[in-house]
Computed example of a mutant assay.
Amino acid sequence: MTTMPTDAPPAPDDLPDLRPIIASDDAAQAVHEVLAQYAESADTSHLGSLTDEELVVLMGGIEAVEPVGQWYPGLGEHPQRVSRATALRSLTSREEVIVTQDAEGDLSARVSRRLMALLRMRFEPVGLSAQSMTRQGPSWYVLRRAG
């Protein structure tokens, strides 16, 4: 396997579709594992968070991450590509997602257990959604019950 070239920012079709991974039984098991580790941890103040840009890359588009990322469709094509590339680079640097390309040009992704669990938990119904306005724009708090 070779790594994905980084000379041009990725287009939406340049990235593997992670939805089958997120919907898998393995992802459901990852939720149980991550929540069990979290419950045993001395620091239970933060399970994890992802930026709007990371969610857009990981979930395959803005529709899957609403209400966050409302600003994203207003970007032009090039800024959207740069945003996706930056988000993917951030995820890769944290070893959350590793994207590889085989000799035929097919892409595949390896997703960390923690990230797989966080993304799977996004499928849970929203129990509470609150928005606050900051100088940088809206900030969202979305509460979901998991486990």
Rank of each mutant, 00 (worst) to 15 (best):
P125W: 01
S112N: 06
E66P: 00
G127D: 15
E96V: 02
Q101A: 14
I21S: 10
L58A: 09
Q131C: 13
V99G: 12
G74R: 07
A39C: 01
T3A: 11
G48R: 08
R120S: 12
Y141S: 13
E96N: 10
P10D: 04
E54H: 09
V99C: 15
R89E: 13
A11W: 01
Q29D: 05
H32T: 13
R81E: 14
L118F: 07
A87F: 05
T86K: 05
M59L: 15
T2V: 12
D14K: 08
M4P: 04
S93N: 10
Y141G: 08
L55R: 02
A27Q: 05
V82R: 00
I98L: 15
P12N: 02
M133C: 10
D7Y: 14
E95D: 14
R120C: 13
Q136P: 07
P125I: 03
R94M: 06
H46W: 10
T51V: 10
V97R: 04
V56Q: 03
E104V: 11
P73C: 03
S132F: 09
A11C: 10
A27K: 02
A103W: 05
R135G: 14
A87Y: 09
E40K: 06
S90P: 06
T92A: 13
S24L: 10
V142C: 00
P73I: 03
G147N: 06
